[in-house]
């Protein structure tokens, strides 16, 4: 079968998208409640947080790294922002404080990895614990709740019928896609992940950009915290546990290689949607959450197995 070049070049994304379409089709045959506007918006809402974390992680993974701390960063950034709101800070300033804390944690990750030469796994494993501890210390382990209407609008509001969080997700993805494909930052992200030494010898400021990539990862996790806090009207110091694993899953299902150098933001979005649709569909079908865990795990493994299989059959 001869494929048009555009499709051949992005075969993986089209493949993931095809799986997504088939999945939606199957679920809508099985239950009439799936393919309704209300439910689809619901799926999108539930996907937003994971999708935001996953887009940052996609950058990190394409650059050949990993970030295990995003879930903890989300919690830490969330409680800091919540405190700021409770202290009566203007909403934009409080959000900026939260995102700043997230980006700051990312900066520490990046510096440890780039300049301290720590393996990303170790540096972010440490940060995972530090940021979680920070969140618990800052709140004495208790949730911070009760915010103004203007802040909650971020989760409850709609613009032209589209929920604000979904709109934010779409904007972030569009920007992330353009940055990855059209800017120096994106180009260097791929190059560093593909061959760090060759990049360095080609004049790429490797350490600077690697650091920047983790800052982006931390910042986007914090953005997830903003939306989560607004939705729950509460910031929990124990929020975001295992979120890094969901984000890694979405990224991997979307075709980004853990070896670095390969991957796409669009793939990750579809990956996150597949996970969202799967959870939603299984809920609608009344499948127990225990079985859901099993299904999600199988999907992750199947996605990577298929990748490996197709790569081998090309030899």
């Amino acid at each position: 079968m001869k494929l048009p070049p555009v499709i051949a070049r992005h075969a993986r994304q089209f493949g993931t998208f095809a799986v997504f379409v088939v999945l939606c089709a199957v679920i809508s045959v099985l239950t009439p409640h799936f393919f309704t506007v209300t439910n689809l918006l619901n799926v999108a809402q539930q996907t937003v947080i994971n999708a935001l974390i996953a887009v940052g992680l996609t950058y990190v993974i394409i650059s050949g790294g990993i970030d295990l701390s995003v879930g903890s960063i989300l919690a830490f950034a969330g409680v800091v922002m919540a405190h700021a709101l409770r202290l009566g800070w203007p909403v934009p300033l409080a959000i900026l404080a939260g995102v700043g804390v997230g980006a700051g944690c990312g900066l520490v990750n990046g510096l440890l990895i780039s300049y301290g030469r720590l393996p990303p796994f170790i540096a972010t494993l440490g940060m995972m614990s530090v940021a979680r501890g920070g969140a618990l210390l800052a709140t004495d382990g208790r949730p911070v709740s009760g915010f103004g209407e203007s802040f909650r609008w971020l989760a409850t509001g709609e613009i032209a019928g589209v929920p604000v969080p979904v709109l934010i997700m779409v904007l972030v993805y569009a920007a992330a896609h353009l940055v990855l494909q059209r800017t120096k930052f994106g180009r260097y992200t791929y190059a560093i992940g593909g061959n760090e030494e060759a990049s360095l010898l080609s004049g790429v400021p490797v350490r600077l950009y690697k650091t920047g990539i983790y800052v982006v990862g931390g910042g986007l996790a914090a953005l997830g915290a903003v939306l989560l806090t607004a939705r729950l009207n509460s910031a929990q110091p124990i929020a975001g546990i295992n979120y890094e694993l969901d984000a890694i899953a979405a990224t991997v299902i979307g075709g980004t290689s853990l070896m670095g150098g390969q991957g796409s933001v669009i793939g990750t979005l579809i990956g996150a949607l597949i996970m969202g649709v799967l959870r939603n569909g299984l809920n609608l079908l009344g499948v127990s959450s225990f079985i859901q865990q099993v299904v999600i795990g199988v999907v992750i493994i199947a996605a990577v197995l298929l990748d490996t299989f197709f790569k081998q059959s090309k030899r």
Partner: peptide, 9 residues
Amino acid sequence: KRQGLVLCL
């Protein structure tokens, strides 16, 4: 391969 090119690009 190791120092000159990013093979996957």
